[in-house]
């Protein structure tokens, strides 16, 4: 589904990604962990071209992500959820969800609304359809943001520290929506600090540090028997 070959990314002179190689299969849930500054968010943002890779190849759903490709076509198939939700504050929850289907997919309004309400029901916010984001809690906003991404019927979902900006009591509600998605077979790449989620839901864990993949494997292997000393040091600090 996603193929990454020798991905490099520089910000000015700073090399943030130093040659990432990885293959994410359909329906796979890949959890990316690592210390802050390790490049994991940048890696994720390269996958839908929010960041332009400096060098290397990325293929998403068979389409190479090079400068010629229609970026918007890729982004339609790849949903993204941000740490800070990024809901559109001038629109209600439902309007947030149906905007892209209407504008990008040219879905008619009635159908977009119907799908939107179903998605709101799915994330447990059916009764909040007409609320503006500033009237919703952080957890509710993030669930709307997930529904908004799903409204485009993406094949892949990217989560960029989706629970890091939430109050602790709201982390659970967002994680449970993400777990449901994983169970339904969504291909997911999740950058997170939630090790419980990584263990429970992840098919594979990738540990990144200093711009490279230090270690990857099944969650039990990585968490129980980390081979790389850097992984051991990182896990001993947070577990």
């Amino acid at each position: 589904m996603i193929l990454v070959k020798d991905l490099h990314k520089y910000f000015g002179k700073l090399e943030v990604l130093k040659g990432i190689n990885c293959h994410i299969k359909e329906k796979e849930v890949v959890v990316v962990i690592g210390p802050s500054g390790s490049g994991k968010s940048t890696f994720l943002r390269c996958l839908n071209k929010l960041e332009e890779p400096t060098r290397g190849e990325i293929t998403v759903d068979g389409i190479p992500l090079n400068s010629d490709v229609n970026v918007n076509a890729i982004r339609r198939e790849v949903g993204m959820v941000f740490q800070r939700f990024n809901l559109f504050p001038h629109m209600t929850a439902l309007e947030n969800i149906i905007l892209a289907p209407e504008v990008v997919r040219k879905t008619n309004k009635a159908e977009a609304r119907k799908n939107g309400m179903e998605l709101l029901a799915k994330v447990g916010l059916y009764d909040k359809a007409d609320e503006y984001p500033d009237r919703l809690s952080g957890g509710q906003q993030q669930r709307v943001a997930i529904a908004r991404a799903l409204a485009m019927k993406p094949k892949i979902m990217l989560f960029d520290e989706a629970t890091s900006a939430l109050d602790p009591e709201m982390v659970g509600e967002v994680l449970s929506v993400m777990k449901d998605l994983a169970r339904e077979g969504m291909t997911m790449v999740v950058v997170t600090h939630e090790m419980g989620f990584a263990r429970e839901v992840g098919d594979r864990v990738i540990f990144m540090d200093e711009g490279i993949i230090m270690e990857e494997g099944k969650p039990n292997e990585v968490f129980e028997n980390p081979k790389n000393p850097r992984t051991q040091a990182f896990l001993s600090k947070i577990l």
Binding site: N48, V78, M80, N86, L87, H90, L99, A100, V104, R148
Partner: peptide, 29 residues
């Protein structure tokens, strides 16, 4: 906020669509 453009673009909107539906209505206010 840059995140607004990023959210709009990540949903597959073009730069023009992001401006028209997301950025300008907020900026205008």
């Amino acid at each position: 906020d840059r995140g607004q453009t990023e959210a709009a673009r990540s949903l597959g909107m073009t730069q023009a669509q992001a401006l028209r539906y997301v950025i300008l209505p907020q900026a205008f206010k």
